[in-house]
Measured scan of single mutants.
Amino acid sequence: TTYYDVLGVKPNATQEELKKAYRKLALKYHPDKNPNEGEKFKQISQAYEVLSDAKKRELYDKGGE
């Protein structure tokens, strides 16, 4: 599973699309609303952290993490 899959976006997604997808999923899986989905929330946050940063995203796209 790639970070793009976690957020449900395509690899060519814009920053705005990433932000929108992250917010939607973060609300859905937030531990306050969904106590059993803490791990999913962490995955979503990690994916967004990497993909929202241009340098980290470039490194990730080249095969790094």
Results as ranks from 00 to 15, higher is better:
57 R>P: 03
49 E>G: 09
38 G>Q: 13
16 E>C: 08
42 K>W: 07
26 A>K: 11
21 A>I: 03
57 R>H: 04
52 S>V: 06
18 L>V: 14
20 K>H: 10
10 K>V: 06
4 Y>Q: 01
61 D>G: 03
55 K>C: 14
40 K>C: 09
48 Y>T: 00
26 A>N: 06
33 K>I: 14
16 E>H: 09
6 V>N: 04
50 V>I: 14
3 Y>I: 04
51 L>H: 00
40 K>F: 11
4 Y>F: 03
32 D>E: 10
7 L>I: 04
58 E>C: 09
15 Q>D: 13
50 V>C: 08
49 E>F: 08
9 V>N: 00
61 D>E: 05
47 A>W: 01
13 A>F: 06
23 R>Q: 15
38 G>I: 13
61 D>F: 02
59 L>W: 13
59 L>E: 15
46 Q>G: 06
55 K>W: 10
13 A>S: 05
49 E>R: 10
12 N>R: 05
56 K>T: 09
28 K>G: 05
65 E>G: 13
22 Y>I: 02
10 K>N: 10
39 E>V: 11
5 D>P: 00
19 K>N: 14
63 G>K: 07
55 K>V: 15
25 L>G: 03
18 L>G: 01
13 A>G: 02
47 A>Y: 03
52 S>E: 03
29 Y>E: 02
11 P>G: 05
29 Y>C: 04
33 K>G: 08
19 K>W: 10
30 H>E: 09
33 K>T: 13
8 G>A: 05
26 A>P: 00
42 K>D: 08
37 E>I: 07
63 G>E: 12
26 A>V: 14
18 L>R: 00
42 K>H: 06
47 A>L: 02
27 L>S: 13
61 D>K: 01
8 G>M: 06
21 A>P: 00
64 G>M: 15
51 L>M: 02
7 L>Y: 01
25 L>Y: 05
25 L>S: 03
27 L>P: 04
39 E>K: 10
53 D>V: 03
22 Y>T: 01
15 Q>F: 15
45 S>H: 12
57 R>N: 03
61 D>I: 02
9 V>A: 03
54 A>Y: 10
40 K>T: 08
31 P>L: 06
38 G>E: 11
21 A>S: 06
33 K>W: 09
23 R>W: 14
37 E>P: 06
58 E>R: 05
14 T>K: 04
10 K>T: 12
31 P>N: 07
2 T>W: 08
22 Y>N: 01
25 L>C: 05
20 K>R: 15
1 T>N: 11
52 S>Y: 06
22 Y>C: 03
49 E>A: 13
65 E>P: 12
46 Q>M: 14
15 Q>M: 15
53 D>Y: 02
15 Q>P: 11
50 V>N: 04
23 R>Y: 15
18 L>K: 01
46 Q>H: 11
56 K>E: 06
44 I>V: 09
20 K>V: 14
19 K>H: 13
12 N>W: 15
38 G>T: 13
52 S>Q: 08
4 Y>L: 02
3 Y>S: 02
65 E>T: 11
12 N>Y: 10
11 P>Y: 08
56 K>G: 07
